[in-house]
Design a protein around this nucleic acid. Sequence first.
DNA 1: TATTTATATAAGGATTTAAGAATATATTTA
DNA 2: TAAATATATTCTTAAATCCTTATATAAATA
Lengths: 131, 131
Amino acid sequence: MDKKKLYRAFKAIGEPTRLKIVKMLAQGSFCVCELSEYLDMLQPRISQHLKILKDEGLVRENRESYWVYYSLDKEAFHRLWHDFMAYLDTDLKTLGEFEEVVKRMENKVCNQRIRDTKIKKMQNKLSGEQN
Amino acid sequence: MDKKKLYRAFKAIGEPTRLKIVKMLAQGSFCVCELSEYLDMLQPRISQHLKILKDEGLVRENRESYWVYYSLDKEAFHRLWHDFMAYLDTDLKTLGEFEEVVKRMENKVCNQRIRDTKIKKMQNKLSGEQN
DNA sequence: TATTTATATAAGGATTTAAGAATATATTTA
DNA sequence: TAAATATATTCTTAAATCCTTATATAAATA
């Protein structure tokens, strides 16, 4: 429900290499060397991207002797979307981040100006028609 | 179902300013000047981010005289998640992007090596126990 | 303990991106 | 047509990001 958590998760998926890794892990669990070999990418590149996905809680790691197997936390993905939808549905007033925004909206400075302009325009048109 | 389309949409949401704009538009439709005023951001900044969201088909624009009102295409969001889930479920073999990957996996060079190592290790342990 | 294998982290360079300033375009009105 | 208003686009700079190379860490084995 936290904005930062949301955009960071989307940012994590919103990158071609990481989406490719996510797609691989959707097929099953793989260790770093397998991903590196199958995707034909250098190992540090895989590790770094996996770290980003892990930091967002989207993948899990599982050490087996030398190898660290990574797998998708599918529940985390569903939670992500659910939280995002809930975030969009949440009343602005209850979100601390929008405190100042809500104040500005209550003043309706901008809306007021627009409305005034529109009213003025309509009045002008009407008075024009009366001539 | 296209990987590029997917990661670009997530990338669009995966940025704090744009997520904030999306959240605003989830409350209703706003023109650029309203967003600019309420979010206390310079107008070009709003326009630029709206363009990115629009390019991904996540928001719609609607001109009314001077003003361009933007609104959320909620259906596009649902479609995005649906397509993402479908992408994850799709067989690797049917995705052109993974053609080479599938070939490498079929060779099982990496798996083979790992398996061999594990088998060797197990054999060593077994032979050790027999001593 | 030294070596091997797999993975993680750090440093560097190249590219991309976001933000602000300046300018251009579009629509309406005088 | 000129001026006013709202929006879009361009340009520049600073920061972030990605990839590679090099190095460090962790686990297993000789």
